[in-house]
Design a protein around this nucleic acid. Structure first.
Lengths: 136, 136
DNA sequence: CTAAACCCTGTACTAAGGTATAGAGTCAAG
DNA sequence: CTTGACTCTATACCTTAGTACAGGGTTTAG
């Protein structure tokens, strides 16, 4: 048998059962058919797709971006270059976030250095800085 | 006059009027009093506090953390060291996020390098990797 | 035959940080 | 006195990625 119920898919994919239905609503995952009673029927392949989704998420892709990737893959006109473009855009995205966080890191480090950590909070250079006026 | 209406505060603070009320609900900002009709009355000081909130947000603090900072500052027992501890925790937090994103960056870069960008999507090493099985 | 275990749909809830709208009251100018 | 600008509260909506529950139908084991 190659057929799976929703709970088997969830268990094998390591996700919550509700998540499967959620992915279906989001257009990421569909059962191949239904039983007469309306129960969803899946193939073994679905577990593979779940893994695809999880890995892409780990790389920072959102569900809607992952949906795009999945549809791109289905389209015979899609080339390897098309996929690479998505990956490059995501990389640029991630690098942007890193730069932003590094700027925050620098500011925080500077503030922490400026604070000797003694005296009342009223004199704390960190709070003074947040208050504005004086510091850059 | 040192009194401000809600829309004056919003304009001077560069935020939406609704945001002022939202911050009040979150315990970050309170009017000094109300008119007989129930209109909020603020001081000039409120604009300073708004600036405090915005700067702290830029440093990656959440509103609830900012609320903590504000209450800490009000407490006469709070020392400069208490504030520094918060800043250090936030710095650790930010550095953790940077490391996470750098790991993603590495994986994406590796995948992009592995893809020559030609041929059909079916042969794309990026998609193959997401599918699993072979690659780490 | 019945109870447990499963499945269905639809809805509501979570975090965070707001934004928008409805319906009502208030205030100042002309 | 009316119009427009302002304010009030309460509620709903947005994003993302799910989770939970209610109320019902189905399937399977004993």
């Amino acid at each position: 048998m190659n057929k799976l119920t929703i709970s088997q898919v969830a268990k094998q994919g390591g996700v919550n059962l509700q998540t499967i239905r959620y992915y279906e609503r989001q257009g990421l995952l569909a059962p191949i058919s239904r039983t007469e009673a309306g129960y969803r029927i899946y193939q073994k392949d679905t577990v593979r797709r779940l893994r695809f989704i999880k890995r892409a998420q780990e790389l920072g892709f959102s569900l809607s971006e992952i949906k795009d990737l999945l549809y791109l893959r289905l389209d015979a006109h899609t080339t390897s270059a098309d996929i690479r473009v998505r990956a490059q855009a995501k990389l640029a995205d991630v690098e942007q976030k890193i730069r932003h966080l590094e700027a925050i890191q620098k500011s925080l480090s500077r503030l922490i250095k400026s604070c000797r950590g003694c005296g009342p909070a009223a004199d704390c250079p960190i709070l003074e800085n947040l208050d504005g006026e004086d510091f850059p």
